[in-house]
Write a protein that binds this DNA or RNA. Structure first.
Length: 489
RNA sequence: GGUCUCGUGGCCGAGUGGCUUAGGCAACGGUCUGCAAAACCGUGUACAGCGGUUCGAAUCCGCUCGAGACCUCCA
């Protein structure tokens, strides 16, 4: 893109280093992110990854790229565990609740969309489902079979990892050696169909009682765990595309298998830049549905969880996440979230002030340009949102000084600052003012209340004015007096 | 057990060879205010431990301790 803003560096997990981002096609980016398995409500840890890649998506757009962002919905597959060989999470859940599998899928997909909207995450351009792409998956399996990298066994198809490894390095993404993998593979039940323990299923033969199943050249069955992402990314982004994102925990085996499947089916390594978001931890451990160590977004927004002392706006949670780099683990505590809330409020107050302050007539003082440049250098360094925020707070300091009449900026500088700050705070970080809806009726009421308080203050009737202030504070409304009048939020 | 990552001041969290004492929150002093709040100015506290490389290391190497991730569904 030859950007005047400098090169964008992306940490490529495949290479283990930051590299200058060069898209396959000038000006265009293909972005694929592994989406959720919709068998339960997404928890906050899931959300972090999607919010991280929402940031990536937003910044690429800001740089002027035309991005096709694909994020799948996994609505079939993913065996629960080895004891339940042959049963997938969605089918199991359906049986438990006496629901149709698609009913489960729909319910939790709706929940996922709602949560993403609350977090102000932009919807992907395409959100394909695994069940909607059975044909593509069957075609891909056939191609892998034709190329000799898979074999049939009892109506199931397995990927032949050792055969693949003869010509391509299996384990290059996760930094594993196949000998180590073989040495460390556990003895699991129901492995007799496989030639080798490392082999993974591309297609599984379905037992009669299995709920979700489809016809295939190899009999009735269902697609394997890792295949859907390969089939859908290939369909919508091509055999090779720019960026593939996902959580760190998917690196092995899921993404390793994707590389193998893509390469085995069409001879090309499917992804140019692999990006992995790190985990959100709770009590120092990875948030996880299965261990119960997780928080639901809804619990945060309502405050209904023993770990929380109050409720938090989704934007505060988003800000909290933006304060950490996407490749670092982030530990969730109520205390840290409370601190984030204050920082977020400070930033949003400054954004309001930015609209109100006026520039002076003096010449360009040169103080704004370096700040704006620092926004770009932060984000160009592998989407370093925490540094961006630090730089934004430099701008906040300047804005507040101007507001207090202790500094001044030229009209031109102010216009530049407005444009770039709004772009980075709203468009790139995806933040917005909290609770901006539903104020239509309270505004006139507040105007009246504050007018009465002002009258009391004029008469030096502090008892009355403080009673109003304390009463409003109890209702969660903070009153702020300044030379220009009284404001509230 | 194997592979890998991390350990930064009261808290969260950037930085990766020599002034960034990043930033946010909290704390302290001051300005402003009827008093607050907000804002502004100023201040302090740090790189797990030990050893090594180097003119110089939080940053590189080794060891110790601690935490975590993956190896099995997972964002």
């Amino acid at each position: 893109m030859g950007s005047i803003k400098g090169d964008l560096l992306i940490y490529n997990s495949l290479r283990g280093e930051k590299l200058v981002f060069e898209p396959l096609k000038e000006g265009f980016v293909g972005l694929y992110v592994c989406g959720p398995t919709v068998y339960s409500n997404v928890h906050l840890g899931n959300c972090r990854t999607f919010i991280s890649f929402d940031l990536v998506y937003r910044y690429l757009i800001h740089l002027g790229y035309k991005v096709r962002y694909v994020r799948n919905i996994t609505d079939v597959g993913h065996l629960t565990d080895d004891a339940d060989e042959g049963e997938d999470k969605i089918a199991k859940k359906a049986r438990l609740e006496q629901l149709e599998p698609m009913e489960i899928v729909h319910q939790y997909t709706m929940d996922f969309h709602k949560v993403m909207e609350q977090f102000n995450a932009i919807s992907p351009n395409i959100e394909p489902t695994a069940t909607g792409h059975i044909i593509e998956q069957i075609e891909m399996i056939q191609a892998i079979l034709d190329n000799g990298f898979a074999y049939e066994s009892n109506g199931s198809i397995y990927f032949d990892v050792e055969k693949y490894n003869e010509t391509h390095p299996y384990g290059e993404l996760s930094g594993r050696k196949i000998e180590d993998l073989i040495a460390n593979t556990r003895d699991l039940d129901g492995q007799d169909e496989k030639r080798a323990p490392l082999d993974f299923a591309l297609w599984k033969n379905a037992q009669p009682e299995h709920i979700m199943k489809w016809p295939s050249p190899w009999g009735i069955g269902f697609p394997g765990w890792h295949l859907e992402c390969s089939a859908m990314s290939t369909k919508y982004l091509g055999e090779q595309f720019d960026i593939h994102g996902g959580g760190m925990d998917l690196k092995f085996p899921h993404h390793e298998c994707e590389i193998a499947q893509g390469t085995a089916s069409n001879g090309k390594s499917p992804v140019r830049y692999w990006m992995h978001g790190n985990m959100l931890t709770l009590n120092g451990k990875k948030m996880s549905k299965s261990t119960g160590n997780s928080l639901l977004p809804e619990e945060l927004f309502s405050g209904e969880n023993d770990l929380l002392d109050k409720s938090y706006d989704p934007m505060v949670v988003r800000f909290f996440m933006m304060q950490a780099h996407y490749r670092s683990t982030l530990d969730f505590t109520s205390e840290a979230l409370g601190a984030a809330e204050k920082g977020y409020n400070k930033l949003m107050e400054a954004m309001k002030s930015l609209d109100e302050i006026v520039g002076g007539k003096e010449a360009d003082s040169g103080q704004v340009k370096p700040i704006v440049d620092s926004f770009y250098s932060a984000m160009n360094d592998d989407f370093n949102a925490p540094v961006l925020l630090a730089n934004l707070f430099e701008a906040v300091k300047l804005i507040n000084s101007v507001k207090d009449g202790k500094a001044s900026v030229s009209t031109e500088d102010l216009a530049l600052l407005r444009k770039e700050m709004q772009a980075f705070v709203y468009d790139v970080l995806g933040l917005k003012a909290p609770g901006s809806e539903g104020d239509n009726r309270i505004n006139p009421v507040m105007d009246l209340v504050l007018e009465l308080r002002q009258q009391a203050r004029t008469k030096k009737d502090w008892d009355t004015s403080d009673k109003i202030r304390d009463g409003l504070a109890a209702a969660g409304i903070t009153v702020k007096d300044s030379k220009d009048g009284t404001s509230w939020n």
